Simulated assay, not measured.
Amino acid sequence: MSTLIAEDLLLLLLDDETGRLAHSDKIRPLLGGALLIELALAGRVEVEDKTSMWSTAKVVVPETPPPDDPAAQDPVLGAALELVRDRPRAARDLVDRLGKGSKETLLDRLADRGLVRPVTGKVLGLFPRTTWPAIDREHEAAVRRRLQDVLVQGLVPDERTAAIVALLSTVDHAHKVVDRGDLSTRQVKKRAKEIAAGAWAAQAVRDAVKAAQAATTAAVVAGATVAAAAGG
């Protein structure tokens, strides 16, 4: 089954039984970062050189699309690409814009594919809430096996798996999606960070991938800071 990195990320963050989403307060920049990384890995976006030490590197769309352009075949990626094409923006701005509304769209797609199902209810009998328990777990299990191979067995990840690890590491969740076996939580976390920082993307797209990772991390940290301040 062909899925987006963002869709695999959602499946990993959803509790199969309850259908509740982990890190729901951080999901917008996470999904935005996943979409930006997917476009980068497909060669559909790149990062321009900074024009000065005071400027911010901007993400742009190259003039010539690659053969078998995935953005031309997937409406979610196509919409994401058009947003990037609108005008050059910093990655941090893009992950927020790309992530807006993406959770609902992607969850609906997963439901249409028979992987999850929407269950509506109310919290405290008052506030409406939709959860998304799993129906077919085969695809998610395959994703978890690949993560197990790289995080626990130490195999070299492909670009897609490395991207998922990098995004999960952003919210300190990578160690929660595998069976650690004899490894400690600390060891798995360290491996996830090493993968996130590694040269797993081709040189032509590495700048865009790193920009998306950094922007996602910054957005997640900023959101956590605001939430902590509000709670205080």
Rank of each mutant, 00 (worst) to 15 (best):
M1E: 09
S2P: 14
I5P: 01
A6W: 08
L9E: 05
L13H: 08
L14R: 13
L21C: 10
L35G: 04
L35T: 01
L36V: 05
L41D: 00
A42D: 06
G43Y: 05
V45D: 04
V45I: 14
E48W: 02
D49Y: 07
D49P: 01
T51N: 04
W54N: 01
W54D: 08
T56A: 14
T56G: 01
T56Y: 04
V59Q: 03
P65T: 08
P65S: 11
A71S: 15
A71V: 04
A72S: 14
Q73I: 03
V76Y: 01
L77D: 05
A80D: 09
L81G: 08
V84G: 09
R85V: 07
R85I: 01
R87P: 00
P88I: 07
A91T: 06
D93P: 00
L94C: 09
G99P: 05
E104C: 00
A111M: 07
G114H: 03
L115V: 12
P118F: 04
V119M: 12
V119D: 01
T120L: 11
L124D: 14
G125N: 10
F127S: 11
P128A: 05
R129W: 00
A134E: 13
R137N: 07
E138S: 14
H139S: 11
R145K: 10
R145E: 15
Q148F: 02
D149M: 09
L151V: 02
V152A: 00
V152Q: 02
G154V: 02
G154T: 12
G154Y: 07
G154M: 08
L155E: 13
R160N: 07
V165P: 11
A166N: 01
L167A: 09
T170F: 08
T170M: 05
V171K: 01
K176Y: 03
V177R: 05
D179T: 10
G181Y: 04
G181I: 10
G181N: 10
D182M: 05
S184Q: 10
S184H: 12
T185D: 08
Q187I: 00
V188C: 05
V188W: 13
R191T: 15
A192I: 06
K193E: 14
E194K: 09
E194D: 14
A197S: 14
G198T: 02
A199C: 03
A202L: 06
A202W: 00
Q203E: 15
R206F: 01
V209F: 05
A211L: 03
Q213Y: 05
Q213V: 03
T216I: 01
T216F: 01
T216Q: 03
A219L: 09
V220P: 01
V221N: 12
G223L: 06
T225W: 02
A228E: 14
A229F: 12
A229C: 09
A230P: 00
G232S: 13
